[in-house]
């Protein structure tokens, strides 16, 4: 998985909510634990986007979901 396609979240709940929203736009993603090198605050979860990451990020942010490390 290419880390450039990952969007990070501090909370697994936020990551799952984002995944659900993206699925509603037919954007598939995979939920994984964020790599230690990427997560400054410690443990978090990432969505690896199968598609346009910028569009996914825009959809997530417009839904009011907090991302991490952007």
């Amino acid at each position: 998985m290419d880390e450039k396609n990952a969007i990070m979240f501090n909370s697994v709940t936020h990551a799952l909510r984002a995944q659900e929203i993206l699925a509603g736009y037919s954007i598939r993603s995979k939920l994984v634990k964020s790599s230690r090198s990427r997560s400054e605050k410690g443990c978090g979860y990432s969505l690896y986007i199968n598609g346009n990451r910028s569009k996914a990020l825009e959809l997530i942010r417009s839904s009011g979901i907090q991302t991490a490390g952007e």
Partner: peptide
């Protein structure tokens, strides 16, 4: 422990964590 922001000593301020 919440499984989030684990490197920080402050309790996360995000809901529901």
């Amino acid at each position: 422990g919440t499984g989030s922001n684990s490197a920080m000593f402050e309790q996360p301020d995000i809901m529901p964590d």
